[in-house]
Design a protein around this nucleic acid. Structure first.
Lengths: 156, 156
DNA sequence: ATCTGTTGGTAAAGTATCTTGACGGTACAT
DNA sequence: ATGTACCGTCAAGATACTTTACCAACAGAT
């Protein structure tokens, strides 16, 4: 069964077999499509000061109400690096860093109206892609895809 | 049917509904798991001079035989940025930039033995994850997932 | 209350990675 | 041959990150 591979489906390098795309590439390629679309729509709609690094701050579930430390941990960057991005986004009017009433060391991120709009535009862009992909795969199969991915993302 | 959503499955922000994770997050989260695992295994196996930006060069289908320009376009960075990374990877012994026999302006990227090994280690790491996920979802459902993702990645 | 250890945010300095602009060499069509 | 486009690279500068260091605020023990 290991040999049942159609070589037309993928590239074979000259030195040695590269093999078919593994699950990594299969996840990455459509994810890159999603990110491209989000950035595209944002720029079209006037949020053209948002760049890839800023985008990461807005990714699901977003920064609303979060503490910088937690968000940095989730994003896998140092809290200083995040702090730099938050400074940029605050300067650009997308969010504010407010005092945390329960812990005076801490802060809470609050999206401004503009920040909420940007988040909305991003979600709209993805919903748009969902419709395109649902049309391509069929309603039922797209739902299956979502279910399967949710099971992977769940335990992650 | 649109209402059949269990609120325990996802976060609801205080100001307004964030909604369930869209396909973007569902793709991104497991993809990040893949990338983390690849980097982890690389570092364990002595390829500890490879960092996230370098990793991108090796991602499917990899740089073997490619021209810097094409690769840069595929990666979505400027050719100068890629050239910098190629310089690093060449210095670290992962690849060489050879002359292209058919076009003397151009070059072709050739992986060294060490470069091939690193690529192999990355693929092994993903195969490992594939087994874990196949066990979680079941053989048949994991195969379905692959099929569905292939249809998305195909037309990209 | 005070001591101790820990946590949250920030400042400063240095580094890595990316951008834009410019250039010489090559290919290719007219 | 000549104009145009493309390929890789150099150089300069901006951006995004890391490491180190620091202080204020919390938490738990006396």
């Amino acid at each position: 069964m290991r040999d049942a591979i159609k070589s037309s489906d993928f590239t074979i390098s000259e030195t040695g077999a590269l093999g078919p795309p593994l699950i990594g590439a299969l996840l990455r390629i459509p994810w890159e499509t999603v990110r491209r679309r989000m950035l595209e729509r944002l720029h079209e709609q006037g949020f053209d000061d948002i760049d890839t690094p800023h985008l990461n701050v807005f990714l699901y579930p977003g920064p609303q109400g979060e503490r910088p430390s937690e968000l940095a941990a989730r994003m896998g960057v140092s809290k200083q690096a995040l702090n730099y991005l938050l400074g940029e986004l605050e300067r650009l009017g997308y969010l504010e860093r407010r005092a945390d009433p329960h812990d005076r060391r801490s802060r809470r991120i609050a999206l401004t109206r503009r920040g909420e709009s940007a988040g909305h535009a991003m979600r709209e862009a993805v919903v748009e892609l969902e419709h395109e992909w649902e049309a391509r795969l069929g309603r039922k199969r797209f739902a299956q895809l979502q279910t399967l991915l949710r099971e992977l993302a769940g335990h992650a």
